[in-house]
Design a protein around this nucleic acid. Structure first.
Lengths: 371, 371
DNA sequence: TCAGTTCATGGAAGGGCTTCCATGAACAAA
DNA sequence: TTTGTTCATGGAAGCCCTTCCATGAACTGA
């Protein structure tokens, strides 16, 4: 196999192959074709299960491919097929727990369909443009899943204009498909639960109102109050103004917001809807520090049902992460298979998960939760 | 541009291009060359900053490339260059918080170096083999970062044999580079902290001993006990036996383990080292339910310093996630650039972060933590 | 003036695959 | 027998780049 140069001497080392890390000598379709005594076209057809390959030939080719340990080169396939068989996921912040859970399920769904997942995560919103440029320029993906991120209309336009299908998960859009949760009705249900428990002064802790889930959850909250004839008192609402990471859906925000509410003294709420479990977590800690018992002194309901919620005994609205992931992946893959079907705007209903923090259970027992 | 068929009539639609979603007519290097009146080689050199391109020519080419909105096709480049400019990350379970944090930082580090991140996540260990096959067969990545995962020696061998550089992060290996934390000394320090606080009966809650961090942390724990002359009493140790997800480093495990320890009645420990913050979280909830106050009745130290730890007031050993990510990425990229340097086995020191749960602070105040 | 150098350039080859078209064998129908 | 028809097959062309080699212009120094 060693190269022989001009005057016939053998070079001391195999000169051009196997030298770089990562560039291991790979067996190609030509090697298989040669050994099987057929043309490359036939090998390709055999491997890809095309019809019109003689069963015997096919069996022989597959056997030889196995022997030679042949594996098709994905990049070459992509280039020839003009499909990359991979999907780009744009994710805002990996430490947002709900986002992580979504991503996990999306990964699983994509893997089942034999798609690779290329991850793009944003440290800060300012990088969004660069990232979109990058995705476009690379043409490494057949489609985009935008998770919990505020892709602006401009960016979406550019992606769509390039012919890249985009599906948003846990976010809304006027133009492209999205799979989300009915934030308004979810918040409404959460609030109604507190109302049913007899509360009149109900507070709201929210992320930044720049994010649409925050706005919708506030609307749902207000709607529930209105419909029940409860007083609508904005002094009991705290939304994040700092507009920092994760749209203010952080423990810090929840903590600070709770302190503010507790400072209202006698005017403080008897119940609280936290528009997100992480906010609820921060709020719970503030309450604990101030000696405010939950649910005795303050009833709470959250939103998301992240894994920790169970351990906090937090009553919350569960977002159906698995279903959202499956649906989003399915729609994206559909879009990628030509089918220019109608736009899909899916809003799944979140589900009220009753635990201890709302106070409607007498005794909270984690063991029950776990069983 | 429309295709003209045999008898000269114009087909109603542009027949072969722009039809499939995702297959938007892209401008290639040929288009640029044509318009600039140069050869494709020159365009390629201009774009890639090769020397030996006349400055004027280069400027013209770049201008025209811009005008035409030309962007090189990453896949074609990869095929020609025999490098993919992307890295595969094998991740065990995305809901492991520390893993997510690592991944976040790894993503950032890779992006800075212009590498793409292809994510492979494992639902269950059984799929590991398939995943490795996949990574190999695809040849879509130039290197592998294995995060917190028990890649077996067999799998590593196969990857390395193929010439794929592998770096493990948050895990150990005899054969490939790894960047990890000194689990033994970390656990030792955590335990020593409890010893300094005067505890004699110190418990241990651990994940599955099949995982090496769990073993090492147990060793460190025992070493600290031995060196201080404290009794070594295995009845106070609970390790996960179920060997379920995340090597047993789950809230469930922590919760169940704590219940067991509390059932020891008078023999129960006065202090506890939880080998992982998530275990600690589960344990804290069990304690809370049983009315065991932390730190008054039971002092606790965890391991990892996940984001929630701050809100739990959990004293813990902080793993330097940012540095681990940076180092790992740097090493991997080095490995991918030919340089067959010596194997790197890096164990960073975790840092004791003192909060409330160990009892050495009089008053816990989250506000302080946040400032 | 001429050989020798340097440098900008064009374009073929090559990377590994898919796919289309052409070919010919086998078989069916007339 | 002849004419189709069907099917298995080989291999060129094409996907879009990079890179190498050849070419020739411009320049150097004697």
């Amino acid at each position: 196999m060693n190269k022989v140069d001009g005057d016939g001497t053998c070079l001391p080392f195999p000169a051009d192959r196997n030298i770089r890390a990562g560039a291991a000598l790979a067996v190609t379709i030509y090697d298989v074709a040669l050994k099987a005594g057929v043309g490359i076209g036939t090998v390709s057809r055999a491997i890809n299960n095309h019809p019109n390959v003689h069963p015997e030939t096919k069996a022989r080719i597959l056997r030889i491919a196995q022997e030679l340990n042949y594996l098709p080169h994905a990049l070459a396939q992509s280039l020839a097929r003009k499909k990359t068989q991979s999907v780009g996921c744009i994710v805002p912040f990996l430490t947002s727990y709900f986002t992580s859970e979504l991503l996990k399920h999306i990964q699983r769904a994509l893997t089942e369909l034999n798609y690779d997942l290329i991850l793009f995560s944003l440290d800060c919103m300012e990088r969004l443009s660069k990232m979109v440029d990058r995705v476009l320029s690379e043409r490494r993906v057949d489609g985009i899943l935008s998770i919990s991120v505020g892709l602006t209309q401009k960016h979406i336009d550019r992606l769509v204009h390039q012919g890249l299908p985009v599906v948003m998960v846990d976010g809304l859009s006027q133009k492209v498909d999205y799979v989300s949760v009915d934030n308004l009705r979810g918040a409404q249900q959460a609030t109604e639960h507190l109302i049913r428990l007899g509360h009149h002064r109900i507070g709201l802790i929210n992320g930044s109102l720049q994010s649409s889930p925050a706005r919708l959850r506030q609307q749902g909250f207000v709607k529930a109050l209105n419909e029940s004839g409860r007083p609508v008192d904005p002094t009991l609402w705290v939304a994040d103004k700092s507009n920092r990471r994760e749209n203010g859906f952080t423990e810090e925000t929840g903590y600070a917001a709770m302190l503010r509410l507790l400072n209202l003294g006698k005017n403080r709420p008897t119940a609280l809807f936290a528009a997100d479990d992480v906010l609820a977590l921060g709020a719970m800690h503030a309450a604990q520090e101030k000696g405010v018992r939950i649910p005795d002194d303050l009833a709470m309901v959250g939103f998301d049902d992240i894994e920790f919620a169970k351990f906090l005994g937090l009553t919350t609205m569960r977002q159906p992460a698995v279903e959202m992931a499956n649906r989003a992946v399915k729609h994206l893959v559909d879009r990628m298979q030509v089918t220019p079907s109608a736009r899909i705007a899916l809003e799944l209903m979140p589900e009220l998960i009753v635990r201890e923090s709302c106070g409607c259970r007498r005794h909270f027992c984690l063991a029950e939760q776990l069983s």
